[in-house]
Design a protein around this nucleic acid. Structure first.
Length: 476
DNA sequence: CTCCCTTTGAAGGGT
DNA sequence: ACCCTTCAAAGGGAG
């Protein structure tokens, strides 16, 4: 079996695609090599360490060596190095650093990698390996922080091939090597959607701290404290919307002339609400896996750990915001005019930035349309025209002020509507994948719960087409 | 250089 | 149970 890999790549071998479950494994074989069904099993018995070492022998630059005959996704089909390769100016490992690898021990294979049922959660493994968390490439941090001479080669390999090694290893399951699995690239699309953060989602904020080297383990009581200070910052797992933003940001930026993230995020927020239930479900599912994986990697981690590590003045600022919000609330009439930055500024009409879902958004976004409630499952159902009316795309203070204006009515309604809270708080789509149109009438007609901005956005396509003045007026 | 802005969702703490 | 706050990403803008 070892020879199979050695023969690959530039050696004039013949590429052979062998299927292992839903994934494909690409092998390079001499033309005369017999490809028996049991070949796969033989490969599975390969020591992981060996696979690592032979990995580069697949000879990445030779695109003919690496094939994925399965995925229709362009990203999948692409063997081009740039798809998964990182810019030369950055360390090939750094982009994968998302979380620290504190809890990631090569010697202790995570049980969640078992191919069938996750013994810990009882949740069946996803049918397709590409559904393995792409943003959490099975402890990306581990790879990023463990020097790997082959890192660059690994990253240059077609994601599909990498994924197949996930699977392969899952089958072997005798030893877990982050070196090997980590190459499941963060950019690996799970739904055929190219990941905008393929190359560098995390570089900026999570450069591999040099203190993470194994040398750290030799510590004195004095350094312990310093270590705690320098303790790798384990970030929160991304929620569904964050995952969506990561994926779509590049596209939006490309389509628009805007570059400010605040503006982009507004657009993304709208697009998010314009997504169909099914589309959003993908991200909720992904986020759920993220959290799952995160909790497995960092069992002791708590969101509390990161409190106060970001901004110091935030609370102060928000307090002042709340104050101004009250003022605005008192001066109801001046709501729209007080907006710091009219969002229309971020959302010029006739933009190509309109959601691709805008085709169906005409119905989805219609305030009176019941299916609107389904468009944002995580968020409470929005069915009443009153929500769509009062709010425009607003900056935060304004939004909050308006929210306050209407919250009283909402709250009273909300109290009577337990069903709506079910919708809002539950990890939405997963547990209840109700297709459009199948929502019980009780839910469809239930009053919305709090975050009224959500509902406001659903009226945006209509508002957006109007000049700023109209938008402002509609805010009243 | 640091923080703000802006979005949604998750989580923790307080009431 | 509910509300509030913080943080996750991103990068231009502002101080």
């Amino acid at each position: 079996p070892l020879w199979l890999f050695c023969a690959g790549g530039g050696g004039g071998g013949q590429s052979h695609v062998s299927q292992v479950g839903p994934a494909f494994i690409v092998l390079s074989l001499p033309t005369s090599a017999p490809v028996a069904p049991r070949l796969t099993l033989a490969l599975c018995s390969l020591p992981v360490q060996y696979l690592q070492m032979k990995w580069p022998l697949l000879d990445v630059p030779s695109s003919a060596t690496v094939k994925d005959t399965r995925s229709p996704s362009p990203a999948h089909l692409s063997n081009k190095v740039p798809v998964v390769q990182h810019p030369h100016h950055m360390h090939p490992l750094t982009p994968l650093i998302t979380y620290s690898n504190d809890h990631f021990s090569p010697g202790s294979p995570p049980t969640h990698l078992s191919p069938e049922i996750d013994p810990k959660t009882g949740i069946p493994r996803p049918p397709h390996p590409s559904e393995l968390s792409p943003y959490y490439p099975l402890s990306p941090g581990a790879v990023g922080q463990i020097p790997h001479p082959l890192g660059k080669h690994i990253h240059s390999i077609c994601p599909s091939v990498i994924v197949c090694f996930h699977l392969l290893h899952s089958l072997v399951s005798s030893r877990f090597s982050p070196h090997m699995v980590a190459p499941a690239h963060p950019g690996l699309p799970t739904s055929g959607i190219p990941h905008p953060a393929i190359v560098s989602p995390i570089v900026k904020q999570e450069p591999a701290p040099p203190s993470l080297s194994p040398a750290v383990s030799a510590k004195s009581p004095v350094t312990v404290k310093k270590e705690e200070e320098k303790k790798p910052h384990v970030k929160k797992p991304l929620n569904a919307f964050m995952l969506y933003m990561k994926e779509m940001r590049a596209k939006v930026v490309a389509e628009c002339t805007l570059k400010e993230s605040a503006a982009i995020n507004q657009i993304l927020g709208r697009k998010w609400h314009n997504l169909s239930r099914e589309e959003q479900a993908k991200y909720y599912e992904l986020a759920r896996k993220e959290r799952q994986l995160h909790s497995q990697l960092y069992p002791t981690w708590s969101a509390r750990d990161n409190y106060g590590k970001k901004k110091k003045r935030k609370r102060e600022k928000q307090l002042s915001q709340a104050q101004s919000q009250q003022q605005i609330q008192e001066a109801e009439g001046a709501l729209a005019s007080k907006s710091k930055k009219p969002c229309i500024q971020y959302l010029p009409p006739e933009k190509p930035c309109d959601s691709p879902a805008s085709s169906h958004s005409s119905t989805l976004d219609s305030p009176a349309t019941p299916s609107t409630a389904l468009a944002s499952p995580a968020a409470p159902a929005a069915t009443h025209s009153e929500q769509a009316q009062p709010l425009s795309l607003t900056t935060k203070p304004e939004t909050r002020a308006q929210l306050a204006l209407h919250s009283a009515a909402f709250l009273s309604a909300k109290a009577a509507a337990s069903s709506s809270s079910q919708m809002g708080s539950q990890p939405p789509l997963l547990s209840r994948p109700l297709p459009l149109g199948t929502m019980p009438a009780a839910l469809l007609t239930s009053p919305p719960s709090f975050p009224a901005t959500l509902h406001a956005h659903q009226a945006l396509p209509m508002l957006q087409a109007q000049p700023l003045s109209l938008v402002t007026k509609s805010a009243h």
